[in-house]
Structure formats: C-alpha cells, structure tokens
Amino acid sequence: MRINLHVWRQPNTEAKGHIQLYTLDDVSPDMSFLEMLDVLNEQLIQKGDDPVAFESDCREGICGTCGMVIDGIPHGKQSGATVCQLHMRKFKDGDDIYVEPYRHTVFPVIKDLFVDRSAYDRIIQAGGYVSANVGSAPDANANPIPKGIADLAMDAAQCIGCGACAAACPNGSAMLFVAAKVSHFNLLPQGQPEKATRARAMVKRMEDEGFGGCSNYYECEAACPKNISVRFIAKLNRDYLYAAFKEGV
C-alpha cells in the first residue's frame, strides 16, 4: 500500500506547528497504525531527520497511551479501539491520512503528537479513590452487590483515561471521563460514604483545569475506545445535583 501521511510537526510547546506530508510506499495492510509510524520514523532517522514523537505503551489496546487524532477522530475510525488496534487494512491504497495531536488547551502539545494529559491524573487525585482502609480482600459474598450494578460499575471502570472524550468533544469537555471515574465508585457500596464529596470534588477539579461544559453532543461516546456510555454522564449529573443539595457546590 501507498499512504500519504499528513503529520502534525511541532518541535515543542511554544513553537508553531505545521502539517508535514510524508509518502510511505510498501505499507503492509497487516501493520497496526503505530507500526506504520515506526516504519516512518526508521526512514526519518536513516535520513537524519527528527522522528515523529508519539506515545505508546501496551500496544494491545488496554492502556490508551497512544491517543492521537486520525482523520478528525481520536483513535481513528475504528469504533471501540485504540490507535494500536487500528490496522492499515482499514485504509485504502493511496489514501490521504491526517494525523494530529489532541487539540485542547488543557492538553498542551509537548512534541508532535505527544500531549500532556496530566490534568486527568489531577482529576483522579481530587476524588477518584476510596479513602477508607479496606484491609485485605473480603470473601466474595460478604458484601452482596446485584449483578446488574456490578456490571454497570465494571462498564464505567473500563475507562482508561486516554483523553479521547475531551479531544473529541466540540466543547472540550471531560465529562465522560469524570462521569466514568465517579460512577464506578458511586455505584458500589464501598463508594457510598464519599458519593457526594467525590462527585463535587472531581467536577470542581475538571472546571478548575479548564475543561469545557457538556452540551450532550455524545461525540465522546462515539470516540471512546472503551465504549463508555453517556448514561454515566446522566448519573454524574444526578450525583452532582444530590451533592449540591447536600453539601453545596
């Protein structure tokens, strides 16, 4: 396959970036998108050019580190998958592919496709935990949890914090991330004592970081590599309303 790759190049946070065209011949359809970028980088290094900086870690679709925007969609056009699980067979010979970093004031570009996503870590620090010391693992049936609730909490806990929701949202809102992180604790008995405080603190941190507000576009849900549902945003809204009455905002 022959691919025309339009890649965002930006040497550092302050520099002004631009789109650079690279043409790659002999791309195998069995390569993952990241392997294709690896091939590009090998060629760039051989020529003495600066390789394209991008993040990757597990390369098996479970960590979300490889978040980047391909043809206007975070993680590319394959639904429910990260970039490393997007294969070149999804593209056609001679395709033009635009590769950009997440564009968000809260996710500044460090270099090329590499952005600083530590704002998500700070949101987790604000309340994405249970502060009681729960000791060692209890018996499985000591704390009865209905199957439906356990499944729902598990669906929320699937969030890998890759940043695609905020990158996809026309408003740059991180509500899907915050909703998933709040919900997976607030659904379970262990999360109940801090339910209101958690919803309030994590939303407040999200606002303080500078993320936008949710307008129910549902673009986050479409881009999410873990298919987190916007129903968790509805749950966060409920929990936040409860918290606002209980503790103020």
Binding site: G72, E100, R103, G172, Y217, E219
Partner: peptide, 20 residues
C-alpha cells in the same frame, strides 16, 4: 463563549460521528 476558548487551535480535519 467559555467552551469556544477551550480549543483555540482547530483540527485540520473535523469529523463528527454522533454529534448531530
């Protein structure tokens, strides 16, 4: 106005999947 400030640099390619 607040939300518009969040993304000063636009994407080169804009595509919507679910946002009607």
């Amino acid at each position: 106005l607040y939300n518009n400030k969040v993304r000063p640099t636009k994407y080169a390619v804009t595509k919507y999947i679910k946002a009607r």
